[in-house]
Design a protein around this nucleic acid. Structure first.
Lengths: 218, 218
DNA sequence: CTGTCAAATGACAGTAACTCCCAGAATATG
DNA sequence: CATATTCTGGGAGTTACTGTCATTTGACAG
């Protein structure tokens, strides 16, 4: 292992919430942890690409990353978390709340989503695609992905509630959040199924157009 | 176990898809299987009510139902299936396709859903409530419930596709199915959360009203 | 550089959901 | 009654995950 090049701070960030974490001055310990995490994930993706998700065991991944199985679970609570852990949710809420309060909610959602996707595409397009494709194909992952816990639905609901300045969401808010959540999740999955060749911004526009006109197309 | 009353056909059905299964002439073997299945499920629900879902093991359930663990898995592929297996999906598709083809799709969905719910409420209101409450509370269940595999989304998509008389669903169909699926799932869960005290038909009407007017309420 | 404390790791044992296989029992069939 | 088919129980094995404890590693003070 090479020696650390002193503990001075790296260059300042760009405001990208994902990069921000990488730019903070990290202690040796933190750097090691980050490195371990990345190694585990990288090796996992490699093995999964070779053998498939179900055929790849945690033990194999741990061995490939040269950590003990115990350590694996200290970094990822479950095997599914390897693929599903999402660092963007807070960013999405911020983006939503940053929109003007008098803008129609559907438009706020559309613009926030597009903004976030643009950032993601720029920095981790490939990883995003792999993850989405796995999410679509592996039942266990698909199930947990759509679970309201870490899912868009909860996120839209939070934004709606805060924007209205109330504590408890109304019935209408819940339904709206559920519908938009379902539609946007499906949008991203569709993009992944097409191999990422389609323009996702264009897809998002189509999705929200459908929602806005009350499904009159069907 | 009481003797079968000869192998002649029982009285004709009422059109209820659930009763229909119970009315078919069953061989001894079939009747035993059905009974075993019911026993397992009943004992499982009892234990889960006492101890919670996670604290109840398959071995306990098997013991209570007086079958071997092997047999349990022959009847329910996974522990989750105990709660999640749905016999109504085909009925829902039929109900959807039975609506006039020129009716707006949203209205078809609403009416089909209401019709199905009315039947369910009449015959198994309590079981439905318990299941929905579990589905809302246990993360693993909530996740799989919302999974497109056995979920309304897939079901709406099928109906939309067949009605349009095409093979492959269009992009718009997928988005519409996802949105309606999300909204209706949330509707039923909300009903369950309220303990079933609210009028679910009324909730369904509210949900579809929101969808129809393009979320202008938010 | 040294000693001390907290955090990270690895080894181990254990649990629970599931799978596979095989022998024997129950049911269907002629 | 005889035979074929299906169902069941038992046992052995795999895998994801949990908890505990001793050892190691990095952080920090003097």
């Amino acid at each position: 292992m090479s020696a650390p090049q002193s503990a001075t701070a790296p260059p300042a960030g760009t405001g990208n919430p994902i990069q921000a974490m990488l730019e903070a001055p990290l202690s040796l310990r933190e750097r090691k942890k980050l490195k371990t995490r990345q190694t585990i994930r990288r090796e996992a993706y490699r093995l999964i690409a070779e053998q498939g998700y179900e055929n790849t065991t945690v033990d194999q991944i741990a061995a490939a990353a040269e950590v003990s199985p115990s350590t694996f679970f200290r970094y990822f609570a479950t095997k599914e978390d390897l693929v599903l852990t999402d660092e963007y949710d807070p960013a999405m809420i911020d983006a939503l709340l940053a929109r003007p309060a008098d803008e129609p909610f559907l438009r706020s959602c559309r613009e926030a989503l597009i903004g976030l996707l643009r950032q993601l595409l720029e920095h981790e397009r490939e990883e995003l695609l792999v993850r989405m494709r796995l999410t679509k194909d592996v039942p266990a992952l698909r199930a947990r992905m759509i679970d309201s816990g870490n899912e868009s639905q909860q996120l839209y609901l939070t934004a709606l509630t805060r924007r209205a300045g109330v504590r408890e969401p109304t019935y209408a808010m819940r339904i709206i959040a559920a519908a938009i959540g379902g539609a946007t999740t499906e949008t991203v999955l569709q993009w992944a199924e097409g191999g990422g060749t389609e323009d996702i911004v264009e897809l998002v526009h189509r999705t929200f157009a459908i929602l806005e006109d009350g499904f009159s197309e069907a």
